[in-house]
Design a protein around this nucleic acid. Sequence first.
DNA 1: TCGTGTCGGATTGTCGGACGATACGTCGCG
DNA 2: CGCGACGTATCGTCCGACAATCCGACACGA
Lengths: 258, 258
Amino acid sequence: MTEAVEKFRRISSTPAYQLVAEAIERRILSGRMRPGEPIGTEAELVKQFGVNRSTVREGIRLLEHDGIIQRQPNRRLAVSLPHYERLATRTTRALVLHEATFRELYEAGMALQLATIEGATRHATPEQVEAMQENIERTERVLDDPAAVAELDGEFHALIGKASANRVLQLAREPSDLLVRPTTEIVLRHVKEGAPRLLHAHRMLLDAIRRRDADLGRLWARRHINDWRKGFERAGHDLDQPIDRLYLRSLPAGAAAR
Amino acid sequence: MTEAVEKFRRISSTPAYQLVAEAIERRILSGRMRPGEPIGTEAELVKQFGVNRSTVREGIRLLEHDGIIQRQPNRRLAVSLPHYERLATRTTRALVLHEATFRELYEAGMALQLATIEGATRHATPEQVEAMQENIERTERVLDDPAAVAELDGEFHALIGKASANRVLQLAREPSDLLVRPTTEIVLRHVKEGAPRLLHAHRMLLDAIRRRDADLGRLWARRHINDWRKGFERAGHDLDQPIDRLYLRSLPAGAAAR
DNA sequence: TCGTGTCGGATTGTCGGACGATACGTCGCG
DNA sequence: CGCGACGTATCGTCCGACAATCCGACACGA
């Protein structure tokens, strides 16, 4: 089965606006430009690249959209660090479009949460512990309001994420988090004992972090997530259904390109 | 500490090109447009939105860049499913820019790999097992070529990822994978017994998948990753150094906007 | 001195129009 | 029937232009 003729790749020239974006991106990634450093104005880039302003603008938009460059209050362009949130939003959208199921979310979330809590038990700073404590106290005060509790639950897990001191993990975890959050409120609405159980789990997680007891942390993380799953099912949802519908209802209006 | 005056939010109007992007995105995410379905031509969108073509183009670029719309061979625009690779590339870049360390990569990678292999032991199809077997055989034949082995190692783990049948996990795992891959070659170059050990681990992982033995899979995944870490350190690298340098050397030329 | 109104330059967002290149469908010819 | 020429549609790129806004400078008055 020798090939008689050598095959050619599909020919395709890269459009100029992409070349512009790649050129700037390479310079940033190479470390030659640090965050905060200004990129030229559009007019300057036009001169440097020798293309039209429209072309430059299309190229810049891509990087701006990715968050690796940003407009300062001056309106001038500057290198910047991409925020996790933006990335997570993209990933979230992709998962919705691919119609990933809640079961996939549950299984992946479990693995990620366990690793996160373990990191948190090892690396949490006193300030972070303090913030979690404060979060718990606020939760106590709004225990009857599912939306507020769900909101604070999200915040609590974000705090644990930060405390894990592992950015790779955080970036991996955030999308699942974004997808779980909207359902938490739904679960709390259907399961009366949901909020107290959630609060108790948070207390135990914080306790584990304070004791720096990874096993205890994992135990309660597991329970906490299983609570969510049981509540989800008890609320009449099927774990094998795709994520989309429930998620979209709570998609913030301007979440798109932000 | 009551505030005397009520503060205003920072005022900011959304530019038209973003509104265009958001409008189209919402329609896609809502499910009203399915993948493959054509969006109008630029001229049509100009008429519908009542803005200039340049504006439409800037908006379209963003969605095109995200991979949720795509140009067909016709050059016409159509809704499409974002590919994991593209998302992973973004996340990867973000991690490099944030100067995440190899230790974070190692810890997160461990958690993700363990979960992935567990999923694979449960869900791998015969075809996927076959593909892994074939990958192992190819690896045997190029055992002296670090670059080739590293390449096949990446492929092997991608196969396991697919076999896990968990897209959330896959999306979470891919960025770490992309970052680990370049270092594998470096490790193999410095550690003579690296390639055979890697091959053996792959064999054992495949064996575990065949037996559907999750514990065995986890065991070998753990060993496999620890091998990588030890090799990494033995090659003279510090686990606490940021990822950038090593990564960028192997960044493909056109990886940027692709 | 400090706050305020004004002005001009710089920059961006948006616009309208234009051209060449390419993909596709059609049609006529052999 | 096969095949090449031709016209149309669409995109990538370019050009020039204008209003809105931001910034800095400057003068003015309390």
